[in-house]
Design a protein around this nucleic acid. Structure first.
Lengths: 165, 165
DNA sequence: GTAGTTGCAAAAAATTTGCACGGAC
DNA sequence: GTCCGTGCAAATTTTTTGCAACTAC
């Protein structure tokens, strides 16, 4: 369990987006006969505001607001939301999964030095290539491990393009 | 633990390739001061011949040839080989890792229906995009989940939107 | 009221570690 | 002979499950 990383671009935008999304999702659950519970709303909010958390990080945040919540509920809710295509699990090179609300397919650039995660759009050619094989994509897990520009620069200060972090 | 999937294209080619690789890798280990043991040779061979196995599948195959081998040795060897860049772990959507000898970066197309895995080359634009961000890639984990052409056809034989639950 | 959800604890699954013995170099 | 690597068992970590109590609908 580490400190929470990845401060989003604009807290206000993110919250607004998250709130809008949450409503939609809750409707979706309801119309599938699932129940709307305080736990589900809470967890959805947390995941919506904080990409790339793992189950126990989510649990800690949730517990702060709702002390009696159990880790099992976190796992069950994550799995439910994953089933509904709302949440995606990713493997950031650790021995457990991290989760985020699925907004659009994206590639994780994971810096093995500083741990920072950059989200970038996948090239259209990637999905085109899949359909060229007759493959119907419905979920992606795309991770590139390496050094972010800042850490790469630190490591070899005078080489190649001297980019500033 | 399931039956072993993914019969390779040509057993002979694969074996030859694996044998060649193994030698190289063993030299690499030796010159790094690591020891060449029967266990390491065996495991390297198994992983080289069978992509996408998980630790316990590897363990079972190894145990068939060397009954006293322990699962811990499998994990320790995998981790050593990963450190040397010889083996890659991938997350095929299950709660544990699968492993393969790293030949070249590739995308896994994982059919959620039949479980088959197609390996395809990633589009160059993917890596270009990373370097455009100043990111230095040194490992990839690229998974596309969905339906392979066979299963997609089975599911909607007339191409209509006939979705089954 | 009923059936889906939750919390808790216990179980299962996946991986790592401690230690004494054995084998590579 | 010296250490590194191994097997085994025990410990950790991550995730799932059983069940009684609870609550959304």
């Amino acid at each position: 369990m580490r400190a929470l990383p990845h401060v989003p671009h604009s807290r206000k935008d993110e919250d607004a987006m998250a709130a809008g999304e949450s409503c939609q999702v809750l409707q979706q659950l309801r119309s599938a006969g699932k129940r709307i519970t305080a736990e589900r709303e809470l967890l959805l909010g947390i995941i919506g505001r904080n990409p790339h958390l793992d189950a126990s990080e989510i649990y800690v945040l949730a517990k702060a607001e709702r002390p009696r919540i159990g880790l099992a509920t976190v796992y069950r809710t994550l799995s439910l939301l994953e089933e509904f295509g709302v949440v995606r699990a990713s493997d950031l090179g650790e021995s457990h999964h991290h989760f985020e609300v699925h907004r659009e397919d994206h590639v994780h650039l994971i810096c093995s030095q500083c741990g920072r995660i950059l989200d970038v759009a996948p090239p259209p050619s990637l999905l085109r290539m899949a359909s060229a094989q007759g493959f119907q994509v419905d979920n992606t897990r795309l991770e590139l491990f390496g050094l972010c520009s800042a850490c790469a620069t630190k490591r070899s200060p005078k080489s190649a393009t001297a980019k500033k972090g």
